[in-house]
Every structure is written in C-alpha cells, then in structure tokens.
C-alpha cells in the first residue's frame, strides 16, 4: 500500500468517520450510504490539497476521481 493511500485512509478513519463501527478500506465506495456528508467532503478536499500541494478545481471533483481512496490516490498521483 502506498504511503499516500495509508495517510488518506488514516485521515478518513481517524478524523472523518466518527462512527467506530465504520472503517473504510482502500476500495470502500466513499459516497454511498452516507459515509461522507457535506461537511466531511470539504475537510477531505482540504486534506487532499495539503497532500498534493495544490488547490483542486471544482470541475475535478467528480465521481470518477473520488469513488474510493484507491481511485483518489491514483488520480492525484498521476497528475
């Protein structure tokens, strides 16, 4: 598992998911079943921006780039 994927998973499980029974794995669909709400998405984006060192334009924030932790890391590592 890449460092970036570990860091992002730790952030999501440690900071965003307040329900202890819910733990994301690399391929958990983040936007189904209410895992990420409208406040958490802002925190998630802010965290990814810190990780990659640039702002993410709104038009890049679409399902094909954000479906799972694996997808997020692959998308932003390829940029």
């Amino acid at each position: 598992m890449s460092d970036a994927r570990d860091k992002l998973l730790n952030y999501i499980n440690g900071e965003l998911l307040t329900d202890p029974t819910r733990r994301a794995v690399p391929d958990t669909p983040l936007f189904e079943d209410g895992w990420i709400d409208s406040l958490k998405i802002l925190k998630l984006i802010a965290y990814i921006e810190l990780m990659i060192g640039r702002n993410i334009p709104d038009e890049e924030i679409v399902m094909k780039n954000f479906r799972t932790v694996t997808v997020i890391v692959e998308h932003f590592e390829s940029k």
Partner: peptide, 24 residues
Amino acid sequence: DTATDSFFAGGEARGRKLLQQIKG
C-alpha cells in the same frame, strides 16, 4: 450538464454543491 446550483442550498453550500456534483 451537471447542475452548478444546489438543490438544497444552505450553510454548507459549497460542500453540498460538491457532494451533489460527485453523486450526480
């Protein structure tokens, strides 16, 4: 097109807009 205005605007308007955008 994906809509840019939020169906449920409000205090967390940008978060809701982005969530709406991601989820289509």
